[in-house]
Write a protein that binds this DNA or RNA. Sequence first.
DNA 1: GATTATTTTTAGACCAGTCTAATTTATGAT
DNA 2: ATCATAAATTAGACTGGTCTAAAAATAATC
Lengths: 220, 220
Amino acid sequence: MRTSAEENYLKAIFSLAEQSGKGASTTAIAAHLRTKASSVTDMVKRLNEKGLVDHRPYYGVSLTDTGTQVATLIVRKHRLWETFLVNHLNYRWDEVHDLAEQLEHIDSDELHDRLDKFMDHPKFDPHGDPIPDREGRMVDMAGAQPLSEVAKDTLVHIVGVKDSSPAFLKLLDGLGLKLGTQLTVNRRFEYDNSVEVSSRFRSGLLLNEQVSLNLTVKAL
Amino acid sequence: MRTSAEENYLKAIFSLAEQSGKGASTTAIAAHLRTKASSVTDMVKRLNEKGLVDHRPYYGVSLTDTGTQVATLIVRKHRLWETFLVNHLNYRWDEVHDLAEQLEHIDSDELHDRLDKFMDHPKFDPHGDPIPDREGRMVDMAGAQPLSEVAKDTLVHIVGVKDSSPAFLKLLDGLGLKLGTQLTVNRRFEYDNSVEVSSRFRSGLLLNEQVSLNLTVKAL
DNA sequence: GATTATTTTTAGACCAGTCTAATTTATGAT
DNA sequence: ATCATAAATTAGACTGGTCTAAAAATAATC
């Protein structure tokens, strides 16, 4: 018997750990969930009693093996729903996150397996994130890197976004950038770490560091 | 801001009122929701404060206009999801109820409008129940009646089930009866109110009163 | 009309989850 | 090593939802 609140904490800890490689601090979790540190302390205690997380105070919270398994399946559900919403209900990629946050808590492995099958086992969601299979396996993203790290004159294509906030996604839409778009880095400016790229449709597009850090690309 | 619990109470009151034509009693609501009368008293008070129900103690609880509107939209969501699960994810009609009970609480009119459109605005769910549109309108079931009331030698077809419990639906499956099946009432036995019917595939099928009361049919 | 049975409500407790405010604990700087 | 700062925890209160047990109100029966 797991509650939505618990699942949201597991997911937060999972994604914070993924980003930092370390355990998630109480404050980081609180910030991520827009809640208060005291609430986090409480919940972490409960999750620990259920064997889902380990906690070393002042060091961090990390998921146990079962915790990781649970979190991965929630991520799977989230990404399956995002894919369904975009591919079948014609939502835009910047509209689906909040809805998927609701749908991911639907308690039925069977349903999500069927949804997966219905969509022909998609490997990536609309933001380029890999969709775990029912055993938690997903394709590894080896070779993917932020655009900010790409050397001059390298041809790459966009495979994902690190930030999938509506604001960022709308910005990309406005620049004509989407998954699959091919880019070449023309110039890199040390001054502010901005890069100038060219696509098939547009050349001399200047992207600031915030954008290039959040665009995941792969060499071609 | 409505909770799932509130929505479940509204739905219960809605369906009890639909069946009985009267207000729903505290005990009836409690039985329907497998909860205790004291909990119902509590919740009814809250729903009343929100303007969703009227309550005359020892007489019954009824939905206000806004309460009816809210309940109808929940029913809409429930039936849309049931239809989706059966028509697109290949669930059987006896498997979808509990899942739809979860999905109906997803808070997004937009999503359900899109789902409705995706399925080409279905008028009935897999159990033959009419699906309300976004304004709460649904096709009226005039002409539909329980099989138990059909006169001898009348040709009818099955348009719905009053009881949509898995057990009943599986029984129908076992008898080869489904929505659309054409039946003729051959004989009616006063002894136990059972009826003998014939379909295209099977003749002399004896149905007891419990079954015939729960099978909704329409003359052809 | 009085008594019994049933229905409904109240009172008080509990759990999950959240908050604020106060306190404790560790870290980093001097 | 001390002290300020930041991080984490505790204490206590609140909300929504539930329960049991007891009391109150109504309905049914004689």
